[in-house]
């Protein structure tokens, strides 16, 4: 029964995947203007020397990228490329492949945003749970208030403030980059330390901005769960407060939080483009920002495709996990 369910969910994921690839194929072709011509015109207007016969160059580029083929042919070729993880070449840094560019940027984003999101989820959820728990210490409310205020400030603004205070006024943390310039990355503690040192401020700006919203969501859910009859019966049964809090209250209030976490993780890669830009962090967001600035169409297209796929995959994983987390999610169709 679970297998049927998993197969069906997998089918849905494939459908989303196919749609994403098709839309990704169609969108650039629906937009007015020809990227190759634009790129060359830019080249002509900026370079002092002669570029030669623009028309011939355009044609040869078209043939090089397969743009002279009929649309249906291009479509199938595009599928072939996608399935081979071949997303073409970067226009801005020509010999570099889009797939390499993305592969180089992906771990930074996953590391920075993954950690920051998990940390803020863990702290925020626990804090929200305790805020709603009548037996929690009172000082927690005072402690939590600043985070609720911070959640009203956009994360990039917090990023700018942290950058100013932590890297410019006090010069404790680096102002940008993923690791020290003078370091050769390797599998050693110095590298890990350098990476963490550089990740501190960008991660902190995301964590500070998010904790409040996790806490508010969890507090609201926990308050409504505490009104449930099963909490009353648990108390009547003489269970310890700890058991009631963790296994009856938090366990049930957590379910919507986990959905939210999965959605956040799905949008991770695109979630904090501005933070990466502010801290010149070598992740997907910064790469996308650069690509948009330099009209690097294939890189933009590639990153957008990877984003759609990553969301589809997280949703699939969530669908697989959800019945295990909440047994009421039935696998049956009625």
């Amino acid at each position: 029964m679970y297998l049927d369910y998993a197969i069906r969910r997998f089918g849905i994921m494939l459908l989303v995947f196919a749609l994403a690839v098709s839309i990704n194929f169609a969108l650039p072709r629906l937009t007015p203007g020809d990227p190759v011509e634009q790129q060359l015109n830019q080249l002509v207007s900026t370079s002092s020397g002669s570029v030669g016969d623009v028309k011939a160059i355009v044609d040869s580029y078209r043939a090089r990228f397969g743009l002279d083929q009929p649309v249906w042919r291009q479509y199938f070729d595009y599928w072939g490329m996608v399935l081979r993880f071949d997303l073409g070449f970067s226009l801005a840094n020509y010999p570099e492949r889009v797939s390499e560019s993305i592969a180089g940027a992906m771990p930074w984003t996953l590391g920075l945003l993954g950690m920051a999101t998990l940390i803020s989820f863990a702290i925020g959820t626990l804090m929200g749970g305790l805020l709603a728990w009548p037996r929690a210490p009172r000082w927690l409310g005072w402690f939590a208030a600043p985070f609720l205020v911070l959640s009203a400030i956009p994360y990039f603004l917090i990023g700018v403030i942290l950058l100013f205070v932590g890297a410019i006024v006090y010069r404790v943390f680096p102002a940008g980059g993923g690791f020290p310039f003078d370091m050769t990355p390797g599998f050693n503690w110095a590298t890990v330390g350098g990476i963490l040192w550089h990740a501190t401020l960008p991660a902190l700006s995301i964590v500070l901005a998010q904790i409040g919203s996790w806490a508010i969501g969890m507090r609201g859910m926990l308050v409504s769960v505490l009104g449930e009859d099963y909490i009353m019966l648990a108390e009547a049964k003489g269970l310890t407060q700890r058991r009631i809090f963790l296994w009856y209250a938090v366990r049930n209030a957590l379910l919507p939080q986990i959905t939210k976490l999965a959605l956040t993780l799905g949008h991770l890669v695109s979630g904090a483009i501005l933070v990466e830009v502010i801290f010149s962090y070598p992740g997907m967001g910064y790469r996308l920002y650069q690509a948009i600035q330099s009209k690097d169409f294939f890189v933009i297209q590639g990153i957008v495709l990877v984003l759609s796929i990553s969301i589809a995959v997280t949703m699939f994983v969530l669908d697989l996990l959800y019945p295990l987390i909440d047994p009421r999610i039935t696998n049956k169709r009625n």
């Binding site: 449930e228 009859d229 099963y230 108390e235 009547a236 003489g238 009421r328």
Partner: peptide, 25 residues
Amino acid sequence: LRRTRFARMSLVPQGAMSSLNPVLP
């Protein structure tokens, strides 16, 4: 009090439909 509950005086609740924790067998 906690040890007395259910051991010496137990409760059959009003809302049977919702008195059991939905996520525990």
